[in-house]
């Protein structure tokens, strides 16, 4: 199934050494600063454009997706709207889609397990989950999630029984995906906030289930 290819397409090394106050900025940081400053000086964009967009990015975390999931678990009418049109339902909650993407929400059930990936780059539901983790952008996940999803899931400790159908969604254009995980047993009567607190980013990517002990970011 895997196509022969010996070359590495994505770096696997971790060279994100923290920059201390004393260390000189690296070459690419200098380039970023220079590109930004020239574009500002020439009037293509403003410092405020960048500053504001950083605030936008900082405001987007998996807690937003978790809030939508918890609402869907407790409000059947909202869940129906979320599955019908993920973007407009999230907009109801005040989540804007600043990158002009659409959102399809994929419901995990006893019969179907969904998983999201972007084999060509790093498409990700940033408006509702923030920026993706490194592993989502690196070769092993991108290359293998579409061809051997069960093995990839097993590497996350997630074993999907053979009678459960796996659906892998590969994002390539304007659609982004968010997995609506199954609500775990033992959460009857929990408040929306309690429920949201156990919904993890990785569960909304579809690589792990939601459990009573929150285990990952």
């Amino acid at each position: 199934m895997a196509q022969d290819h010996a070359h590495d397409h994505d770096h696997d090394h971790d060279d994100h050494t923290p920059i201390t106050a004393e260390a000189a900025p690296g070459y690419y940081e200098v380039m970023e600063t220079a590109v930004r400053e020239i574009l500002i000086e020439k009037g293509y964009l403003t410092a405020n454009d960048i500053r504001h967009q950083i605030e936008v990015l900082d405001s987007r975390t998996p807690a937003l997706g978790a809030a939508a999931v918890a609402r869907a678990w407790t409000d059947p009418a909202f869940k129906a709207r979320l599955l019908e049109n993920g973007r407009t339902a999230c907009e109801e909650l005040g989540i804007s889609f600043y990158d002009d993407t659409q959102l399809i929400v994929l419901e995990n059930t006893a019969e179907v397990h969904n998983l999201i990936v972007c084999t060509l780059c790093s498409c990700y539901p940033r408006p509702v989950l923030g920026l993706p983790p490194d592993w989502y952008k690196l070769k092993p996940y991108r290359a293998r999630a579409v061809s051997e999803p069960r093995k990839v899931l097993a590497e996350f400790g997630t074993i999907i029984p053979d009678d459960v159908e796996i659906r892998v969604s590969d994002s390539t254009a304007v659609i982004r995906y968010l997995v609506l995980p199954r609500r775990p047993e033992g959460t009857e009567g929990w408040s929306e906030a309690q429920l949201a607190s156990i919904v993890t980013r990785d569960a909304m990517i579809g690589v792990i289930p939601v459990t009573l002990e929150k285990e990952a970011a």
Partner: peptide, 16 residues
């Protein structure tokens, strides 16, 4: 960047 289906190592859950 078109690597879907290629052989690759295990997924290491790295992030920073």
């Amino acid at each position: 960047n078109d690597i879907g289906g290629f052989e690759a190592g295990s997924v290491m859950r790295v992030e920073h």
